[in-house]
Design a protein around this nucleic acid. Structure first.
Lengths: 203, 203
DNA sequence: GTATTTATGTATCGATCGCTACATAAAGGA
DNA sequence: TCCTTTATGTAGCGATCGATACATAAATAC
């Protein structure tokens, strides 16, 4: 059914990847249609036929971001044998990813659209949902550690998840300010110093 | 000399305060001239005569922000008797300020303009400078504690300052996501748990 | 072949962007 | 009073915003 008509003359996946990079570097409102079409190598009608609107393109770009850029960070969380190594790996991978120089610094999910606006309510809402999901993933991993006996029963998983998620968000701003990998790792060390106290303390 | 001509018919300081709130809520690029003039209760020519340009208005607004909203946070840092209380007070005041519901959540300095752009290079640069100054203030306070013997001589003041500054930046995003005062205090507790380890450890 | 469907390139659309020209109003200086 | 200076309100500047109308091109269906 859908293979009728004139075939698309550009690589949709490649164009989406370019769009993701533009949104990542400039944010939703900072990325103009001119920026996007120039980077994607297409004209605006092609963009609208293929993706629908700027808003839809952004949502699809963030989804691609989550599936591509986020995997190293979040797979570490799940696969590490202990919660401590999971958190440490999660933050270490974050430091590595955020300081890569061949791509925008910091996280698209964290920095893409922070200022709520009537015209971009959906965008802010979607990014907030993704941030909340990430924090939930942290909390789930910590709860698993409690259930497995690695952490004490009175360990406040929600508070700890909030803390580590907040640290990661701060690292996005730090990375945007040009922080080196070493500087980001200083933050990771600080966060893991907190772990030592949190995991060792008893009520 | 300057009291010649028709006198200004609006309160310049009050108008600047309104402008600050608009920039705070919407960011630099998200705040349009229409938004600003509407909030300030003036027409655009009055804005340009009184403030010069949108860019100059923003710079003046951030300066006002630093002098007004930032004092509680940063005075605590200087006045607290110990470094531990200084950091704890600094973060506690941050949690209180960022969760006020009668003003925008989070920090103007942290969230005002994160995406560098050809048209707003000065804005980004100015905010980065202010963020760097804040981190330096933290580092200076910690160095003082080392000099006074409160902290060990091998305490890594720079790394710790980076960590606490990053936590505060993360709290801005957390606050923008609607975090309650209690949620922000969970992050503060995490950061202070790090302090316990950092200040207690010996090389 | 013809009809249908979808994509592309050109050339815009109306709306809004930051900003300003212009005439007028309201003050002090002479 | 008249001149100069500064501020205000109206009205609109050129540029750019996100998004489309339109004719044409290129595929399948029949």
């Amino acid at each position: 059914m859908s293979d009728r008509g004139r075939p698309r003359s550009f690589d949709r996946a490649a164009a989406l990847h370019r769009a993701m990079e533009v949104f990542w570097a400039k944010g939703y409102e900072g990325a103009s249609l001119s920026d996007l079409t120039a980077a994607m190598g297409i004209n605006s009608p092609s963009l609208y036929v293929a993706f629908g609107s700027k808003e839809a393109l952004f949502l699809e770009a963030t989804d691609l971001y989550t599936r591509s850029e986020g995997t190293d960070i979040w797979s570490t969380l799940e696969e590490a044998p202990t919660a401590r190594l999971a958190i440490e790996g999660f933050l270490t991978e974050t430091a590595k990813a955020y300081s890569q120089t061949d791509r925008p610094q910091g996280c698209l999910i964290a920095l893409g659209a922070l200022h709520q606006d009537s015209t971009q309510g959906l965008i802010c809402q979607d990014l907030r949902r993704r941030r909340a999901e990430n924090q939930t993933a942290l909390e789930t991993r910590l709860k698993r550690a409690v259930a497995e006996g690695e952490l004490p029963a009175d360990f406040d998983c929600q508070a700890a998840a909030t803390f580590f998620a907040t640290v990661q968000h701060g690292m996005s701003i730090q990375a945007r300010d040009g922080a080196t990998h070493a500087a980001l790792m200083a933050t990771v060390a600080g966060a893991m110093a907190a772990w030592t106290t949190m995991a060792g303390a008893r009520a």
